[in-house]
Design a protein around this nucleic acid. Structure first.
Length: 85
DNA sequence: TATGAGCGG
């Protein structure tokens, strides 16, 4: 499952995000989105996890937590989280 | 080149 991670620090690395998500389950890959104009960190990344239940677990666990002194948001990618389930 | 909500190759 693809997970959208926002409000991440610009100085973070994909390996660090992978480690954070690996604490709650297996992580397939982590990708930080880079801006096309500035070639810099856009401020959000995507995490791919093979197991969906572990993905939801990591989302619920890492969503709203602090990372590098910065608040991060973890949600399902591909489709924005709906307020009504 | 650039910065802080948003969904990428």
């Amino acid at each position: 499952m693809d997970i959208h991670v926002g409000s991440i620090p610009f100085k973070i690395k994909e390996a660090e995000l992978k480690i954070l998500f690996e604490q709650f389950g297996a992580v397939d890959s982590v990708k930080i989105i880079i801006d096309k104009i500035t070639r810099q960190n856009k401020g959000f990344a995507f995490v791919s996890m093979p197991d969906d239940k572990e993905a939801y677990l990591a989302i619920d666990a890492l969503n709203g937590t602090e990372l590098k002194e910065r608040k991060i948001t973890v949600t399902r990618a591909g489709s924005r989280p709906n307020k009504k389930l």
